[in-house]
Amino acid sequence: MSSGIRETERDKIFLACNYIYVFLAFLIVFYPLVYMISASVSDPKEVASGAMWLWPKGITLEGYKRVFENSNIWTGYGNTILYTVVGTAVNLLVTLPAAYAMSRKDFVGRNFFMAMFMVTMFFSGGLVPTYLLVKQLGMMNTMWAVVVPSAASIWNIIVSRTFFQSSIPKELQEAAQIDGCTNMRLFLKIVLPLSMPIIAVMALYYGVGNWNSYFSALIYLNDAGKYPLQLVLRQILVLQEMAAQGGGAIDTSTAAAMNSKAEIAALVKYAVIIVATVPVIAIYPFLQRYFVQGVMIGSVKG
C-alpha cells in the first residue's frame, strides 16, 4: 500500500513537470504572435529600442493607415484572392473526380494510374525543365502560370481516395448503378453530398497553400500589377530589410539616429504581417477540426 502511495506522488511530480513543459511550449509559440500584434500598434521607437516587449506602448494606428493607403498591397490582396479562388477551384476539379475514380475497385486501370501518379513523388524533372515548359506553353506572366503547374498534389489525391474508399459504402454505388444511375450522376448527386468533410479539408489545404505560395509567382510573373500579396510582402519584409543588412553592419549609434522613414517602414512591416496573415489564422480555429481530420485520414494510409 505504501509503495502505491509513493508511486502516485512520483506521478504527481511527473505530471506537474509535464504541465510546465507544455506551458513553456505554449509560451514559446504564443509570445512571438502576441509581440507582432503589439508591435503593429506601438510607437516604432519603443519597438526598436526594446521598451515594447509585450503590451503595446505609445499606441498608434499609423502602420495600418500606411498599409491601407498602399495601393500595391491592395492590388496584391486582390490578385491573391483571385489566384486562391481560381486555383483552389482547379485543384478540386482535378483532385476529387480522379480520387473518386481511383477509389472504385471496378475501375480498370486504377493501379496503372496510381503508379503513374506515385512516380512523381519520387522523381521530378526539376525546376528548369518545368520552367521551360511553362514558357513554351505561353503561360508566362499570366495567372495560369501560378495556377496550373500546381493543379494537383499526389498526396491530396491519396488522402481523398482513402476517404472515398472508407466512407462511401460499396453497396450504395452498386444499388445506384443497378437502378440505372450513371457514374456522373452517382458522383454528383450521391457521392459528393456525402463527402462534405473531405471537400472541406481539400478546399482548406489547397486554399491555404495557394494563399501562402510565392515561388511560382516569383519565377513566372514579371508584371508587378499581377503580383500576389506574398510577393508584395517579400518586397516589403525581405528585400528592403536585406538591403539594409547588405549595406554593412549597423552599429548602435546609427541605429539610434534612424530617421522616421525607417521607423515607419518598421511599423508598416508588423502591420502588413498582421493584415496578410489574419485571414488564414482567423478562420483556422473554427476549421481546426477539418484540418486535423485531413492529417488523420492521411495517416491511415501513411
Binding site: V208, L231, I250, T252, Y284
Partner: peptide
C-alpha cells in the same frame, strides 16, 4: 495549447522570413 501551437503552420514562408529578419535584426 494545441490551437496555439498549431497556428504557426498557417503562416506563409514569406511572413516567416519577415518575422525572422525583424526579430533577429541587430540592435532592433
Amino acid at each position: 495549447a494545441q490551437t496555439v501551437t498549431y497556428a504557426p503552420h498557417f503562416i506563409s514562408v514569406v511572413v516567416m522570413a519577415g518575422m525572422i529578419i525583424s526579430f533577429l535584426s541587430p540592435s532592433t
